[in-house]
C-alpha cells in the first residue's frame, strides 16, 4: 500500500515534465526528419512523401551555397574575434576592484539586449543615412557603405556580433583564470620569465579547458545566427548576409516550403554537432600534447 502511494507520488513528480518534453522536443526532432522527406507547405494536414528530393535540392540550391559560405565565414571569423577579445579583456579586467567590475559590466551589457534590438540599433548607426554617415556627409565626406556593399555588410555583421557577444567570453575566461595556479605563475616570474612567457607557458596551458568551452560555444552560437540578420541587414544587400538559419526560416515561412526548410534544419543540426565534436577532440589532443 505504502509503496503504491510512493509510486504514485513519484509519477506525479516525473511524468508531467517527461511527457511535455517528449511531445514538444523529442517528437519534433523525429518529425523534422520525417518532414524533411515531404513537401509540407505548413497548411496541408497530410504532406506527401517526396523521398530525398529536398536533400537533392539542397546540393544544387545556389542561395544555400552562398549562405553556407557566409555562415561558415561568420562562424570562423566571429569565433576568432570573440575569443581574442574575450581572453584579452579577461586578462585586463582580472582581479577584484571597483574599476574592474565597472568595466566588466560595460563589456557585458550588450548581451542583455535582444539581438533584434542590437541589429536595429547598429543599422540606425551604420546605415546609409545612419548616425555615422550623416556625421560624415554633413561635413562634406562620402557615404561609407557599411551595410550597402556586400563585403562591407558581411564584415559589419561579424563586427556587430563580436561587439554584442564577447562580454560573455570575458566572463567565461575570467572564471577560467581563477583556476590558474598562482604559485605556478609566481615561480615562473621568480625564474625570470617575461610576461609573455608566463602567459604562453603557464597561463594559456592552464586555461586549456576554458579555451575549448569558449570556442565550441562561440561556434555553436554563431552557426545559428538569425535575429541579428533580420534587424541589421534583412539578409541584404542582394542576399549576401543571409545566414543558413535565416534561409531556413525564409524558405519555410515566406516561401511555404517547410519540407525543404526541415531538410536544411537537419543538416544544420548535424553540422553543428559535428563541428562541436571535432573542435573538442582537436583541442583535447592539443592539450595532451602540451602536457607531455
Amino acid at each position: 500500500m505504502r509503496s503504491t502511494r510512493a509510486g504514485v507520488a513519484t509519477a506525479i513528480m516525473v511524468l508531467p515534465a517527461t511527457v511535455l518534453y517528449a511531445v514538444m522536443l523529442v517528437v519534433p526532432v523525429g518529425l523534422a526528419l520525417y518532414l524533411s522527406l515531404t513537401d509540407w507547405d505548413g497548411f496541408s494536414a497530410s504532406p506527401s512523401l517526396v523521398g530525398a528530393a529536398n536533400y537533392a535540392d539542397l546540393l544544387v540550391d545556389p542561395d544555400l551555397r552562398r549562405s553556407a559560405i557566409v555562415t561558415l565565414l561568420v562562424a570562423a571569423v566571429g569565433t576568432a574575434g570573440l575569443n581574442l577579445l574575450g581572453l584579452g579583456f579577461a586578462l585586463l579586467v582580472n582581479g577584484a576592484s571597483r574599476a574592474n567590475s565597472f568595466f566588466r559590466m560595460v563589456l557585458f551589457y550588450p548581451h542583455v539586449l535582444s539581438a533584434l534590438v542590437v541589429g536595429f540599433l547598429w543599422s540606425a548607426i551604420l546605415g546609409t543615412t545612419g548616425a555615422v554617415n550623416s556625421f560624415i556627409t554633413t561635413r562634406g565626406g562620402e557615404v561609407l557603405p557599411f551595410l550597402s556593399d556586400p563585403t562591407w555588410a558581411t564584415i559589419t555583421m561579424i563586427a556587430v556580433l563580436v561587439w554584442a557577444g564577447f562580454g560573455v567570453n570575458v566572463v567565461l575566461y575570467l572564471a577560467g583564470l581563477q583556476a590558474v595556479p598562482a604559485a605556478l605563475v609566481e615561480a615562473a616570474e621568480i625564474d625570470g620569465a617575461t610576461r609573455w612567457q608566463v602567459f604562453r607557458n603557464v597561463t594559456l596551458p592552464a586555461l586549456g579547458p576554458s579555451v575549448t568551452v569558449n570556442i565550441v560555444l562561440s561556434l555553436v552560437t554563431l552557426l545559428k545566427t538569425y535575429d541579428l540578420v533580420v534587424s541589421l541587414t534583412a539578409g541584404g544587400p542582394a542576399g549576401q548576409t543571409q545566414t543558413v538559419a535565416y534561409l531556413i526560416l525564409w524558405n519555410s515561412f515566406h516561401d511555404a516550403r517547410l519540407g525543404f526548410g526541415s531538410a536544411q534544419s537537419v543538416v544544420l543540426m548535424i553540422v553543428t554537432a559535428a563541428l562541436a565534436f571535432v573542435v573538442t577532440r582537436l583541442r583535447r589532443r592539443g592539450e595532451m600534447a602540451v602536457h607531455q
Partner: peptide, 12 residues
Amino acid sequence: PSQVLVIPVVYV
C-alpha cells in the same frame, strides 16, 4: 537549437 525545432513544433 530551437530554430531547428520551430518547424516541426508548428506541426505538433
